[in-house]
Simulated scan of single mutants.
Amino acid sequence: MHIYSRAYPASSKAWLFPPDFSVDDYRKVQARLGLQRTIIVQPVTYGFDNRCTLDSVAAFGPGARAVVTVPTDVADSELDRLWQSGARGLRYHQMRGSLTEWSDVPVMAERIRGTGWHLQIQFDGLEFLDHEALIARLPCTVVIDHMGRYARPLAVEHPAVQSLLRLAVRDNVYVKLSGAYHIAHASGPEYRDVAPIAQALVRQGTGRLLWGSDWPHPTETAETMPDDADLLDLLLAWAPDPAVRQAILSDNPARLYGFG
């Protein structure tokens, strides 16, 4: 999920300017859904300025972690400070508004090799075949966002989905079962066109699958805004086994993000 506040400056490339969504706002979502932990992902709106995200982690306390965005020349001491502040991942949002490049990814992967850090990558899933080889070579833990974030619903047999499935079996790759509305657009709350991809990932193995709400859904309009309870309920169809849901919702993220 993300926190937004106009108290923090936007980056020079920002194009998405949501209204404020605060820690207190998200605590209401947590209370409603029974969520105890949270991962705050640095919005592309703030570029390399991680203060909004890290201040929010501090406000939530030990039940929160962060995924931040940094330049490739970030000092080791700054990475250490970010880690101590709760950051565990480095975000590469390779889409509109980003300050990062694909060439940054292997550079930072090498820097975090053998550490508890991971890279989180989001891009247009129709480009999977262009980037599969690079992702497969990365010497660190990788999280692929939003089930690949395909620009439209695709059959499991589509080459771009097969690329995701090949990457997902690698022992250093996690995949988020999130962002269904980015793929199936205004077809909620069931997002049936996304189910085959999610179910294929579950069938293939659930030891490195994660769930996320993507709250507060800043790309969505009043007409397409999902209900967070409906997004959580999607797992009932995608992963009907309670033990599998336990892994996706709790065990896997506890291991990845370092919750005790």
Rank of each mutant, 00 (worst) to 15 (best):
W215P: 07
M225P: 07
L236Y: 14
T115M: 07
R170W: 08
L54P: 02
A31I: 07
L154K: 09
W102P: 11
D251R: 03
T219G: 13
R27T: 13
F48G: 09
G260A: 07
P139D: 01
E127P: 12
V244R: 00
T206S: 01
W117D: 04
P196D: 13
I3E: 01
H158N: 05
A195E: 09
L138G: 13
E101C: 14
V44H: 01
Y26T: 12
G116Q: 10
L210M: 15
D20I: 13
E132D: 06
F48M: 11
S178P: 13
G148T: 04
Q36H: 13
W238C: 09
P218E: 03
P18H: 03
M147R: 11
G212L: 02
L134P: 11
L126K: 12
R81D: 06
R203E: 05
P189S: 01
M108V: 04
V142W: 01
L167E: 01
Q162V: 08
V173W: 07
T72C: 08
A180S: 12
A155R: 14
S250A: 14
I3C: 02
R208M: 11
R81V: 13
V57C: 05
T38S: 10
W83K: 00
M225Y: 13
L231V: 08
P189Y: 13
M108C: 14
D49N: 11
A237L: 14
E101G: 10
Q199H: 09
H158L: 13
Q94P: 12
P159G: 09
G47P: 03
Y181N: 06
V74D: 01
D171K: 11
V70H: 02
S5H: 15
G63N: 14
D171P: 06
L210Y: 03
Q122P: 02
A198L: 08
E157S: 15
V57W: 07
P71S: 15
A160L: 15
T72Q: 11
P218T: 00
S250C: 12
L232M: 04
A254Q: 06
F128N: 11
L134R: 12
Y257R: 06
I183V: 10
L54E: 13
V74R: 04
A200R: 07
L35T: 07
Y257S: 09
V173I: 07
D193Q: 15
Q122E: 10
W215L: 14
Y26V: 12
G61R: 02
L134S: 14
Y257V: 00
Q246E: 10
D193T: 05
P216G: 06
V107H: 00
K28N: 09
D20P: 14
E190Y: 08
V142T: 02
M108S: 05
R96P: 15
A160P: 02
G116Y: 00
Y46A: 06
P153I: 00
T219E: 15
H158C: 08
Y92F: 15
V74C: 05
S98T: 08
S77R: 04
V143Q: 03
M1Q: 08
R137I: 06
E110F: 15
P9F: 03
Q30N: 06
S98I: 11
E157L: 15
F259Q: 04
